[in-house]
């Protein structure tokens, strides 16, 4: 493990993503990526009484599924990194309380999944054989905590994004032949003064830009090195802004850039306005779609940049702007 430039870590023995799992809710199951997910739920409660319990169950089952698919005995998983959007990360800590694996709860808003993968990769390189990373979000519990009751008859603004219901989990190992995590670039907190909690994509795009440029500078790579550059949940507006701003800085990412929030829903049919968001967005799209693409060698090099808006409902009521973060990992076959 060595440090490149200012913010990037390069692995000498790149950790392997051995196996992944993804479970999504009913709306995602009607989206364009439905066939790639391991399991699609029929209703948002999944037999539970509350959405919070349902979200805990989703992350718990996703983690169990990832462990089972990997064939690694759960006793051999040494550490678990997980997080979500609810206050004090209750979905992951409640969902994984019976896992019996040392647990490191993390919060990076919607960037949690990549933050987990990055920390897990560092653990693998330094001491552990197998670690687990997971993240989840739930549309209903997120609306309840951040916005309005579900039954309130309001109109969502055109710039708003739809929180993905779902969870993604990944098992990282020292050895194997899956996709490798070769570089990670941790991002800085960037705040360009956007206050509108209904326009997260615009708030987070500068953070994604900062991390993207930093990654290219640190590694000496150019955008064309990657088959795909994927951001977590910038949505349509954030995607357009990032593409333009990157071009402005001399990085043309137009041809190989996409966003998980844009990919997971059908904008016209599903009426999700600016696209998907939430921890689950990047986690399920990577675990469902990109991991399979990598394994089938359809794409070989991917830069995954998960973005997060580091605010809560109190800060937005107090009129604070939205500090944002983006972490990038380079995954190669």
């Amino acid at each position: 493990m060595q440090k490149l430039g200012k913010q990037t870590i390069k692995f000498d023995n790149p950790p392997v993503i051995t196996e992944v799992a993804s479970i999504v809710g009913p709306k995602e199951a009607n989206g364009p990526l439905a066939k790639y997910f391991d399991q699609c739920l029929e209703d948002e409660f999944w037999g539970e009484k509350t959405w919070e319990k349902s979200e805990s169950k989703i992350i718990k089952e996703t983690v169990n599924m990832a462990i089972n698919k990997s064939g690694i005995p759960s006793n051999d998983i040494e550490y678990c990194f997980a997080g979500d959007l609810l206050n004090q990360c209750i979905s992951s800590s409640f969902g994984l309380r019976e896992l019996n694996v040392p647990f490191i709860g993390i919060f990076g808003a919607c960037s949690t999944f990549v933050e987990g993968l990055s920390l897990g990769a560092i653990f693998i390189e330094s001491c552990a054989k197998h670690v687990l990373c997971a993240a989840s979000s739930h549309f209903c519990s997120a609306e309840k905590q951040f916005r309005f009751p579900l039954e309130l008859g309001n109109q969502r603004p055109q710039t708003s994004q739809w929180t993905v219901t779902g969870s993604g989990a990944a098992v990282l190992s020292q050895n194997g032949d899956g996709p490798f995590i070769t570089h990670i670039t941790f991002g800085k907190i960037v705040d360009m003064g956007i206050k509108d909690a209904n326009n997260m994509g615009a708030a987070m795009a500068p953070a994604a830009l900062d991390t993207l440029i930093c990654h290219f500078k640190d590694t000496g790579r150019s955008p064309s090195y990657y088959d795909a550059i994927i951001t977590g949940d910038l949505g349509y507006i954030g995607k357009e802004i990032l593409t333009e701003l990157a071009l402005d800085k001399g990085y043309n990412i137009k041809s190989n850039y996409n966003d998980c929030g844009v990919m997971i829903f059908d904008k016209e049919k599903q009426d999700t306005h600016s696209g998907g968001s939430g921890c689950g967005c990047c986690a399920t799209v990577f675990s469902g779609y990109f991991f399979k693409q990598l394994n089938e060698k359809k794409i070989k090099r991917i830069l995954l940049i998960a973005t997060g808006a580091l605010m809560n409902s109190t800060s937005s009521q107090q009129g604070e702007s939205i500090p944002s973060i983006a972490h990038a990992i380079s995954i190669e076959m």
């Binding site: 055109q158 500068p206 507006i237 802004i241």
Partner: peptide, 22 residues
């Protein structure tokens, strides 16, 4: 005007990029 020069420039830029309600 570069959008990232100041917070105000960025806000103006974002307002231009954001679709209006019908």
């Amino acid at each position: 005007m570069k959008p990232l020069d100041s917070k105000k420039d960025y806000q103006d830029y974002v307002d231009k990029k954001s679709p209006n309600s019908p």
